Amino acid sequence: MQSALEISGDEELTERQKDVLNAVLRLLVEEGDRLTMTAVARRASCSKETLYKWFGDRDGLLTAMVQWQASKVRVAQVDRSRLDKSSLSASLERYASDWLHVISSDTSIALNRVAIAHAGEEKRNLGAIVLENGRLAMGRRLKPVLLAGRDAGLLEFDDAEQAFRTFFGLVARDVQIRLLLGDRLKPTDAEIGQDAADATRQFLALYGARNGAAKSGL
């Protein structure tokens, strides 16, 4: 069942709803796939009736949690009329930095481990929830920026999905799989910032249009 809440950013959540989702994230780290609505209600000090009203059911609650995590990866708005290489690079770099912060968090690691453990099982569809509201949703949010860059003559590509997948690979590299397998990798803010800048520079080297440099004055 789809969540009763459609979350694209913190502004759509009340502080009480944020408290509930924080409780879900903590329980997920502690309990893994044993998370229940009863446990969430107890931890968040609210009734199960309230949870069902807000989220529909356990799958709806998990969907809202994944959407909330994904909303932390922000996509900076770009002005198509004044888009240049500098502003495009800044938008991509911010996105990459947010992405690395999210995937390296304890809650994201716990969530993905549970999702992978039950991927493909008919009665446990957290894998599908994470895929649809995480990776696929973030792709849908960034592709308009990539297309704006192409329209402005800054990028060259035929397939926006392929371009996004390349950017995804440059940003994530082997970080996520290492974390999922138990590597105690703890990147600092400075390291994440450098990795985001490197991934953005590499992406622009691969997809940057030759006439984009002239248009942007760079």
Rank of each mutant, 00 (worst) to 15 (best):
142 L>M: 14
130 V>R: 14
74 R>K: 11
206 L>W: 01
141 R>V: 08
155 L>T: 09
15 E>C: 00
92 L>Q: 05
193 G>E: 00
64 A>M: 09
103 I>N: 12
39 A>E: 07
196 A>F: 02
10 D>Q: 08
63 T>E: 15
108 S>F: 15
161 E>F: 02
84 D>V: 05
180 L>G: 01
118 H>P: 03
141 R>K: 15
150 R>I: 08
116 I>R: 14
157 F>I: 07
164 F>C: 10
141 R>Y: 05
127 G>Y: 12
5 L>A: 06
68 W>E: 09
173 R>P: 00
207 Y>K: 12
181 L>V: 10
27 L>I: 00
21 L>W: 01
171 V>A: 03
213 A>Y: 13
42 R>N: 12
194 Q>K: 10
204 L>F: 06
100 L>R: 12
170 L>T: 11
147 L>G: 04
120 G>R: 11
142 L>T: 07
7 I>H: 10
56 G>K: 11
215 K>T: 07
152 A>F: 02
90 A>P: 00
187 P>K: 08
179 L>M: 13
88 L>I: 07
106 D>L: 11
197 A>I: 00
30 E>T: 06
163 A>Q: 05
168 F>E: 15
149 G>I: 02
37 M>W: 00
118 H>S: 13
95 Y>G: 02
47 S>F: 12
86 S>F: 11
89 S>H: 08
77 Q>G: 11
41 A>Q: 05
196 A>Q: 06
121 E>R: 15
171 V>D: 04
68 W>Q: 10
75 V>R: 05
110 A>P: 03
46 C>E: 05
215 K>P: 00
111 L>I: 10
9 G>Y: 01
96 A>N: 08
65 M>F: 09
209 A>V: 06
189 D>M: 05
183 D>T: 06
85 K>L: 14
29 V>R: 11
75 V>H: 08
208 G>N: 04
49 E>V: 15
87 S>C: 03
214 A>C: 04
54 W>N: 15
178 R>H: 04
137 A>I: 01
186 K>P: 00
180 L>F: 08
189 D>N: 13
91 S>K: 03
90 A>K: 12
72 K>D: 02
183 D>Y: 03
98 D>F: 05
110 A>E: 11
11 E>N: 12
56 G>N: 04
52 Y>L: 14
138 M>C: 01
143 K>D: 07
12 E>M: 08
161 E>C: 04
78 V>H: 05
23 A>Y: 00
49 E>H: 13
42 R>S: 12
21 L>V: 01
119 A>E: 13
104 S>L: 06
33 D>C: 01
71 S>M: 02
4 A>F: 11
104 S>F: 07
70 A>G: 01
8 S>I: 02
66 V>F: 02
189 D>E: 14
155 L>H: 09
109 I>G: 04
23 A>T: 03
147 L>T: 14
180 L>P: 11
175 V>F: 09
187 P>H: 09
177 I>G: 03
149 G>T: 07
44 A>K: 06
25 L>H: 03
2 Q>A: 14
50 T>P: 01
70 A>V: 02
145 V>K: 13
153 G>P: 05
43 R>A: 15
80 R>D: 13
65 M>C: 14
126 L>C: 10
41 A>P: 02
177 I>N: 13
148 A>D: 15
68 W>T: 13
158 D>M: 11
154 L>P: 06
96 A>P: 06
160 A>M: 05
121 E>C: 09
195 D>V: 00
6 E>I: 11
35 L>A: 10
187 P>R: 08
195 D>H: 06
